[in-house]
């Protein structure tokens, strides 16, 4: 991978890792959000955040000891959980927007006319 592209990708992943961490902390701290959260919320959020962090780390420091095997394990866990937990919204998101766009577009709500 070209070095510049690696740094850009790593930077983006770092930002999304921080966002994921922020969302996780918010869920833990806010009583109201916690009240309707379930284990899947924490697992999905945690796994996705770790997966992004380890990917960024692997891009930046590919020669760290045992990084490959850790990256492999995290990736497997993430991909196994993907269709089982709420992580699958990553895929469903696009279809949700499609249905939403069709609903409001057909009625002329978006864009306004």
């Amino acid at each position: 991978m070209p070095e510049l592209l690696g740094w850009i990708l790593g930077g983006c992943l770092l930002i999304s890792t921080l966002c994921g961490l922020g969302v996780l902390i918010k869920r833990i701290v806010k009583q109201e959000l916690r009240s309707f959260s379930n284990p899947d919320d924490y697992i999905s959020n945690g796994l996705t955040t770790i997966f992004q962090a380890i990917t960024a780390l692997f891009i930046a420091f590919p020669h760290l000891p045992a990084i490959e095997i850790v990256y492999f394990i995290i990736s497997v866990l993430f991909l196994v959980w993907f269709p089982l937990g709420k992580t699958r919204h990553i895929l469903y998101f696009f279809f949700a927007r499609l249905h939403l766009g069709y609903f409001y577009g057909r009625r002329g709500t978006w864009p306004e006319h």
């Binding site: 109201e32 309707f36 709420k86 919204h89 998101f93």
Partner: peptide, 30 residues
């Protein structure tokens, strides 16, 4: 029903919808 399947699998319970709702804004119950 693709629409049903999609929406049933999409909510991430982020809670950002809370303040859109008149019931929540009025009674402040989760």
């Amino acid at each position: 029903d693709s629409k049903l399947r999609t929406h049933l699998n999409s909510c991430v319970r982020c809670g950002l919808c809370a303040t859109s709702c008149m019931y929540y804004d009025t009674f402040h119950e989760a």
